[in-house]
Write a protein that binds this DNA or RNA. Structure first.
Lengths: 351, 351
DNA sequence: ATCACACGTGGGAGCGCTCCCACAGTACCT
DNA sequence: AGGTACTGTGGGAGCGCTCCCACGTGTGAT
């Protein structure tokens, strides 16, 4: 009681009402100024702004959220354990792009990991409570129920990557297919004849598309695809190492590898070293993502660059538009917004 | 099923009032059940819980925050740019520990970067709006005004590391001093005679303490400290590389290096390679943090382990206690809570 | 029997905001 | 003159909770 009174009255933060009194206007007018409504005369606006400054007024977000039914926050949901998140530069890069774009708005970003069932449960609760205005979804697997949950709850969402070519949600993706083609073309141009690939988890659409690109590039050059040169990884370093060992065992003559991610390329590099193969002399290596790992690798890794920060920005733009559009989502879904951004091969010493 | 029907009928999410009507009790009683108050009979509690389940009731956090003047959220504030955050495994590890401990509560975690002035400004606004119940502060420099701001706003806060031995805020730190001693002792025991160190930014108390430990360990063994063997880094890889180059130039006979962080050790390793020195044959290398980098380095890096996840847990415990204690912070400050956790040397092939 | 005091319980009174209706004032038409 | 159409403004009515006071009812002591 004592604390309550002390907070609310004497030492407490000023309220809209107090600002209104100070400025000699009504509550509604102050609200309009705060929210940038055009329906306020210049003189009144100035007076209110002065009162706000004098009192050091800061809106109470809880009250605003309650009255307006919005939270001014969005969540970046990562359906992976934290360990994966931090091991994979892709995630951090997306987060950076998202954070940068968002820092220009009043929106707050929440980072939510949903890597196991318990977390999933908690996330569902969280979303049901509508504690965020929108959701950014990264790394979604084909059978993930999360997108549908979001649709059902009518929470605006944007997906990073797609679940299929027919993605129902607005999405931002890079041109995985063309990127893979360029990597394989590059290796062929370098005169490599036995070009292998290490794929990511194939229930991730992007990984599938990179594999498609690999195939098409080879076939387009009149070569036949040797299935023994395709090893499946899982986007982890360990997976890359294992896949590379398998490739070396199955096809000792392999002289080039296109890895579906830089992290897997790092794993492949270790396996190649163990086997005494030199890079790029014996085996050329190309990665995907052009992350920090590629630049730091020894030798520096040729990699397909995705404009990840740009993708983060685009996701935010889409999501904010989605949120601003208001509730009647069904009507809007018709004009699906799918952004596909171009990739670019960055050549370094590994190929 | 019932949940869907009820939701559809009322048009929105069920409220406390609706749950109360359903359970045939008053609003207050439902609130008590939801909040786990003991002053409810078992029968009533059961009835209410049933109603909650049937209606799929989820509390409206905004309303709760407004009425109770709390947010059920805490912020992890990183006074560094995102790039630093992601480059430094220390941060991710702390975040992991914090996240793990927090996932057992209803609290939500916000990650806030305050790496430049604009962000600082925004953070100050954010804190002034009391949008979080408490703050976790990592990587604080000696002259950082943030802790004082927090104290002034009476926002509970816990600091990771300390600003000095006389830290005013509750803090959790590792025993940097003892850790450094053990590293240097280890190098001496290995017969190294010319032991250098690469420090972190010395306005970070922990970096200073590591340097102190380095000095004391050498002096304790009856050796004199050669100031030319002390190079200042800044916790970055590039800084480590530069410092190592300086050391090699100033003291070509150096045969061991204690780096103030694994990241700097990685930089030092590069400089050593450039100079054609082998690890550990020519120069032994020891890092600090025992992060993923240490395990992945080639050769694997001997490093001083900090119990980082445990530190994250301890920070949460302290902060929650701080929050639960209520407002009259001044009285409580007297019993300062400073936790210092032990470190441990993890020996690998680099030394 | 009376008092005392637990315990459970219901519901009024806000928390600080946004939304929206009402209304005065001004401007420009018929 | 009256009508119509704006613009700017004030303030009531909530949003869905928590807090707390008041009110039974049951127990034990006096």
């Amino acid at each position: 009681m004592a604390a309550h009174a002390a907070r609310g009255r004497s030492g407490g933060r000023p309220t809209l009402e107090e600002v209104a009194a100070r400025a000699g206007v009504g509550r509604g007018t102050v609200s309009r100024v705060i929210n940038g409504s055009p329906r306020v005369s210049a003189a009144t606006r100035t007076a209110v702004e002065a009162a706000v400054a004098e009192l050091g007024y800061v809106p109470n977000t809880a009250a605003r959220a309650l009255a307006a039914n919005r939270t001014d926050a969005i969540a970046l949901v990562v359906p992976e354990p934290e360990t994966r998140f931090f091991a994979e530069p892709y995630f951090s890069d997306v987060l950076r792009g998202v954070g940068a774009q968002l820092s220009e708005t009043e929106m707050q970003l929440l980072l939510i990991f949903a890597g196991n069932d318990q977390r999933r449960q908690r996330l569902a609760q969280y979303l049901a409570a509508h504690r965020v205005d929108g959701v950014l979804l990264v790394s979604v697997h084909a059978d993930d129920p999360l997108p549908d949950l979001l649709t059902q709850l009518e929470i605006p969402a944007v997906i990073s990557g797609r679940r299929s070519a027919e993605e129902a949600l607005p999405s931002v993706d890079s041109d995985n297919y063309a990127g893979a083609c360029s990597a394989v073309d590059h290796l062929m141009a370098r005169g490599r004849t036995s070009i292998a690939t290490i794929t990511g988890r194939l229930d991730v659409y992007g990984a599938q598309r990179r594999l498609d690109g690999y195939r098409t590039a080879l076939e387009g050059a009149g070569r036949t695809v040797d299935e023994r040169l395709i090893a499946q990884g899982d986007f982890t370093e360990e997976g890359g190492r294992r896949a590379m060992r398998e490739l070396l065992a199955a096809c000792p003559g392999v002289d080039a590898v296109f890895a579906g991610s830089d992290v897997m390329a790092a794993g492949a590099r270790q396996a190649l070293r163990e086997a005494g193969r030199r890079i790029p002399d014996d085996v050329a290596l190309v990665g995907f993502d052009d992350s920090a790992i590629a630049r730091h690798m020894d030798p520096p890794l040729t990699s397909v660059r995705q404009p990840i920060e740009e993708m983060g920005r685009a996701m935010i733009d889409l999501l904010l538009a989605e949120i601003a559009d208001g509730r009647p989502a069904a009507a809007r879904r018709l004009e699906r917004r799918q952004l596909v951004l171009p990739t670019e091969l960055v050549e370094r010493d590994s190929s």
